[in-house]
Design a protein around this nucleic acid. Structure first.
Length: 344
DNA sequence: AATAGATTCAACCGCTAGACA
DNA sequence: TTGTCTAGCGGTTGAATCTAT
């Protein structure tokens, strides 16, 4: 039996998204909000399957996505969370609010595996995860007698806790806070960052801007249409920028990167990303649906009051017992906008 | 400057869980 | 209870880009 793949239909486009498509999708979502992806292709006229639209939105266009280099802290978090949770990238991503699971997965596969390999010596890349688990935490080998299995499991749990604790008790808390502040747009912009942080916050608009930039240059043929779309997109972007905050007021030029920068950029005055996108305070032109997007949809853990609770609860059981005894870094957790109440 | 090999990452595929009729 | 549909997840792929020679 089995359902046919959603993208098997003839005429469904695959491959990289064009700026035009991005604009269509963003425009549609701005007006209608995400969700009901099935209807998106028909309503937008996009020759993409619903799945592709959803992925494009969640992995690339969605507001609040942090792109570029991972910080040391993020790296640590990923390593330890991977050890703790395994390849549950979505779960891991919920602890790194501005990263997508896809990004984390890619980063793990391309950077961290190698790094761990280096650190661990001669293990082959394919064995890295296994080794990582084995070295970091004892594994439940089949050879372990049943009686010992539970003790081993307890050891694993303990070590997992330890690992998380280590990950959380950052040796450089300040730098994390600093980076967090930067990442959240504390009046700084990309230009002022060290090279390795060069794209801390390449917002989705930046991505689109980048695409558009090349796009406008590359094919003059369709310039008129492109320009129209760009203008249309700019209108949308201005709306959304207004929603995002007031720090991006200079964006007035249609189809300029600066303008697009403002689309999803985050207001420096708000330490919480989701706040800056919140419809409550800043909403000017958004539809109710769209307002809801940025509060709820953009990414589960963007909302410190609600969305951290779920992942935190996953760890709650692990940590609850002796976190307080160990003096788990409440401050750090707070700084991550984790809901302390959910923890303790 | 040209080429090959390595790396990166956006996008796709297939599977599963949950909602719903 | 069963079947269908959708959203979401993790694994994989391959084009684009980078780096070394």
């Amino acid at each position: 039996m089995g359902r046919p793949p959603c993208c098997d239909k003839i005429g469904v486009k695959k491959g990289p998204w064009t700026p035009e498509e991005d604009i269509m999708l963003v425009t549609y979502i701005q007006e209608h909000g995400p969700g009901n992806w099935r209807s998106v292709p028909t309503n937008t006229g996009l020759l993409r399957c619903s799945k592709s639209c959803r992925l494009r939105w969640t992995n690339y266009l969605r507001p609040g996505i942090k792109r570029g280099s991972f910080t040391d802290q993020e790296e640590k978090m990923i390593i330890h969370l991977q050890a703790l949770l395994g390849n549950r990238w979505a779960a891991i991503a919920s602890y790194l609010p501005q990263r997508t699971d896809n990004d984390i997965k890619n980063y793990w596969n391309t950077h961290l595996k190698k790094k761990l390999k280096k650190l661990q010596g001669q293990a082959s890349p394919d064995d890295d995860e296994h080794n990582h688990h084995q070295q970091g935490f004892t594994t439940t080998s089949q050879s372990i007698p049943k009686g010992q299995w539970e003790r081993k499991l307890q050891t694993d749990i303990h070590m997992a806790k330890q690992a998380l604790y280590e990950a959380l008790s950052l040796d450089n808390q300040q730098s994390f806070l600093k980076e967090t502040t930067i990442a959240l747009g504390d009046g700084d912009d990309d230009c002022n960052r060290p090279p390795h942080q060069e794209s801390s916050y390449a917002s989705s608009t930046k991505n689109i801007a980048r695409l558009l930039d090349g796009w406008m240059k590359s094919s003059p043929k369709t310039g008129k249409i492109k320009a129209e779309n760009a203008v249309r997109f700019t209108n949308v972007s201005n709306k959304m920028a207004a929603t995002a905050g007031s720090s991006t007021s200079e964006g007035g030029n249609a189809a300029t990167p600066e303008c697009f920068d403002s689309l999803f950029s985050f207001n420096s005055s708000n330490s919480d990303v989701s706040q800056s996108m919140s419809a409550d305070e800043n909403n000017v032109n958004l539809t109710p649906e769209t307002s809801a997007i940025f509060q709820e949809e953009s990414k589960p853990s963007l909302d410190s009051n609600h969305n951290h609770q779920v992942p935190i609860k996953l760890l709650e059981k692990w940590l609850l017992d002796d976190a307080s005894v160990q003096g788990l870094q409440d401050d750090y957790l707070m700084s991550m906008a984790l809901d302390a109440d959910a923890l303790f």
